[in-house]
Design a protein around this nucleic acid. Structure first.
Lengths: 152, 152
DNA sequence: ACGGATCATTGAAAAAGTCAACGATTGTTT
DNA sequence: AAACAATCGTTGACTTTTTCAATGATCCGT
């Protein structure tokens, strides 16, 4: 058997004009990435979204659930579920908002930070796999472009 | 009322480390993009996915449903629904595979091509809106990086 | 203090995704 | 050529995700 390559072969259909469609490219890269990420996070009982929530809970930024919903492009009710799950497992807890007593601030527990550190390591390896075709410079470039597209 | 700006303000949470997470950036850009795209395509009774199928049907590449499923990261059964819908509306039709009589080739009708041309115009304007923060060069660069990440 | 708006939460309804099974057809093995 | 496993599109069941309206508590402007 010849040299076993891990390359993804270019599909015949990529030749179509739509192969330049940003929407489609984003959808595809997002789809394959989510698959890998969720697989990597499964070891820690997390998924892409719960990991995002946990990360922000660990960030020291003291996000409210509303901020999480906006930032993660989720419905507020979805955030409730995610936080419920993480809270039941003792990884985060809800604290009362400081200026606004309606809002709940999500903060990490010590256990939450422990899990988060481990999970992040796994995820970063995963990300590197997904972007293996890019050089380090291109990798940085891609992030910068995505951020600029989002927030100018 | 002062100068009405269309800028998106940078969310407080973007400062978190996760603001560099490729997975999250892709998810966000994809989410906001899909919203815009679907809104733009609604005028033609299309959504992002049915538009993709229609585009490939119009491409002359004569894709099979299996190829569509693989290329669009969909389950084969989802392709059935999409093609059913487009076929009922007379925009595409199923033709028998040439080498393989199990496979069905999806080709566009004249009406399908008519609608597709119109819809594409709307979509391109939409894409430009979404990537307004990028220069033309960065726009090209982003596409190139996404394609390279996907197919090397 | 009043009225309208926003927060987290709930629950229901709609949409999307996943998966196993099927007939028809193909390619492969014997 | 006969038998076998594999693949294609399709169907239907099932689960998950998304969407949305309603609610109590709280905030803000008047």
């Amino acid at each position: 058997m010849g040299p076993q390559s891990t390359e993804v072969e270019i599909p015949r259909l990529a030749a179509a004009k739509i192969g330049n469609d940003v929407g489609l490219l984003l959808a595809k890269l997002h789809a394959t990435g989510s698959l890998l990420n969720n697989k990597a996070l499964a070891d820690y009982g997390l998924r892409e979204r719960s990991f995002s929530v946990l990360t922000l809970a660990c960030s020291g930024l003291e996000p409210t659930q509303r901020e999480l919903a906006d930032f993660l492009s989720l419905d507020p009710s979805q955030v409730v579920s995610l936080v419920d799950d993480l809270e039941h497992r003792g990884l985060v807890k809800r604290a009362q908002g400081k200026q606004d007593r309606r809002a709940k601030i999500i903060v990490s527990t010590a256990e939450g930070r422990r899990i988060h550190t481990k999970a992040r390591a796994g995820l970063e390896a995963c990300e590197q796999t997904q972007l293996a075709a890019l050089t380090d410079e291109e990798n940085v470039q891609l992030r910068a472009l995505l951020k600029k597209a989002l927030w100018g």
